[in-house]
Design a protein around this nucleic acid. Structure first.
Length: 453
RNA sequence: GUGGAUGUAGCUCAGUUGGUUAGAGCGCUGGAUUGUGGUUCCAGAGGUCGCCGGUUCGACCCCGGUCUUUCACCCCA
């Protein structure tokens, strides 16, 4: 055999069986999005690097896939630059495009670029692949799908509430038990402020975020390493370890953050959201979690994260409010909020929990066994009629051995098989065999349609 | 990006302290059974032992490199 073909690291092929399952996820999510009035858009796989760079932090820039310029790009680079052997610098000379890293930044670009055609608030959803040059692991790929919903151009906290309702509805339809973790960047900013380390907010949130993973001791250690003063760390302790119901946490937080204007604003926002939720039929547990930070540094208000309650896994949905993402592209004072469903991780959870529905509308319902030319001529009009009635049907394309045709039906999990030979043609009927029970009956074409429809 | 593991038939995996012809199960093809499959029985095909190089009389096995997959860290969906 010649060298086996392969695909790039961290990418995957999807078989027909997998695609049926994947589409089940996408279709469910899409339906719910539309139920809440969101409309789809798509953006190109590639964006200009100027759009992408600097939006995801230093780490993110490294994880961007860059696309080489076309043509004889290297001849335009000066010798000194080549000799310098500085990849980062050289990249700017030979690459001006990159694969999108997420859907939010391209969306911000889209909004700014099409601002005159958009009426705000703009509610859009977007289901497309994104690429990250991360090192792959289980549940982490270099190409994966995100399902984003965002509403931009509205400050109302009602948007936050609707997003949580969407999460609730999607996971109810997918029959997964999840918990929504909710926090607010303003509270985190307030905490940093009252412990006197306002400028270290990023380091502090990143450290706190790891609490349930590495424990309190290691969090404190990391804080110290990042240069947070011992006194500040001490003040921080009661805040990190805050417990009780959401209302209790909020009450205590108000005392602790009384001197911080941002902090109080954050609590107020959270309380508003919780008040709305209380009056709605949201089944999903929503928990105020102060240790939730999320890496993306463009978030400014609410932060969400959704985790499966049934298994230990990274977050399967996440998002938040960003007050000035479009500002970078020259459109000020437009606030947006959105969340992203990680379809690939949801797939893995559904697979492990065995929660995919058994029956799917996508597969073939009935196969015509092929006995030869004469029989084909008899069967083809009936086949057309089945399809006209919305019944997924196919005919085996050649009159091969019965066993082979039956095996084909088995492997494709086709529930019914139709056999037509001399006797059936004379009587003007077909023999319909149920592949599961083995039962067989003769039906006229009309009865057949009625039975399978 | 850092550190560790892994790679043998289409799939899941055995195996050899380095020695001539590399094994199983499942799957595949054919037959028992040319209008009745998923069970059973029989037979058969299929592998440059990830790739490149080194050590050796001799390498699937030892060494180096490289790629894949995977685990932890980083970060994240």
């Amino acid at each position: 055999m010649a060298q086996k073909p392969s695909i790039p690291k961290g990418t995957r092929d999807f078989s027909p069986v997998e695609m049926v399952k994947r589409n089940y996820i996408f279709d469910t999510i899409k339906e719910v999005f539309q139920l809440y009035g969101f409309m789809p858009i798509e953006t190109p796989s590639m964006e200009n690097l100027s759009t992408l760079m600097g939006k995801y932090g230093e780490e993110g820039d490294k994880l961007l896939f860059k696309v080489l310029n076309s043509g004889d790009f290297i001849s335009k680079v000066r010798d000194e630059q080549l000799q310098e052997r500085n990849s980062v610098k050289l990249t700017t000379k030979i690459s001006e495009k990159g694969l999108r890293y997420d859907l939010t930044v391209p969306f911000a670009r889209y909004v700014v670029q099409h601002r005159n055609d958009i009426s705000f608030p703009f509610k859009r959803y977007q289901i497309q692949p994104v690429w990250r040059a991360d090192r792959p692991q289980k549940g982490r790929y270099r190409e994966f799908y995100q399902c984003d919903v965002d509403v931009i151009g509205s400050n109302s906290l009602l948007n936050e509430v609707e997003l949580i309702q969407i999460v609730d509805e999607v996971y109810r339809r997918l029959q997964l038990n999840v918990v929504v973790k909710l926090n607010n960047r303003k509270i985190l900013a307030g905490i940093a402020e009252i412990i006197g380390e306002a400028e270290k907010i990023i380091d502090i949130t990143v450290a706190i975020d790891k609490l349930d993973k590495i424990g309190l001791e290691n969090v404190n250690k990391e804080l110290a390493e990042k240069g947070v003063s011992a006194k500040a760390i001490e003040t921080l302790q009661p805040i990190i370890l805050l417990s009780g119901t959401n209302a209790e946490k909020a009450t205590k937080l108000k005392e602790l953050l009384a001197d911080s204007e941002v902090g109080m604003k954050g609590i107020e926002e959270l309380e508003t959201v919780f008040n709305y939720l209380d009056s709605l039929n949201v089944e999903t547990e929503v928990e105020l979690d102060l240790t939730l930070a999320r890496g993306l540094n463009y978030y400014t208000g609410a932060i969400f994260e959704v985790k499966s309650k049934d298994m230990e896994f990274g977050s399967i949905t996440g998002g938040g409010r960003y007050d000035d993402l479009t500002g970078i592209f020259g459109l000020k004072d437009v606030s947006g909020v959105g969340i992203s469903f990680g379809a690939d991780r949801i797939y893995d959870v559904l697979e492990q929990m065995n929660k995919f529905p058994e029956e799917t509308a996508a597969t073939t319902k009935v196969l015509f066994i092929n006995f030869g030319e004469k029989e084909e001529l008899f069967c083809l009009p009936i086949l057309s009629k089945l399809r006209a009635n919305g019944i997924n049907a196919e005919i085996y394309p050649a009159s091969q051995k019965m066993k082979k045709q039956m095996t084909y039906a088995n492997n494709k999990n086709i529930p019914y098989v139709i056999m037509v030979g001399e006797t059936e043609m004379e009587e003007g009927v077909v023999s319909l065999k149920n592949m599961e029970t083995g039962d067989q009956e003769k039906l006229t074409p009309e009865q057949l349609i009625e039975k399978l429809a």
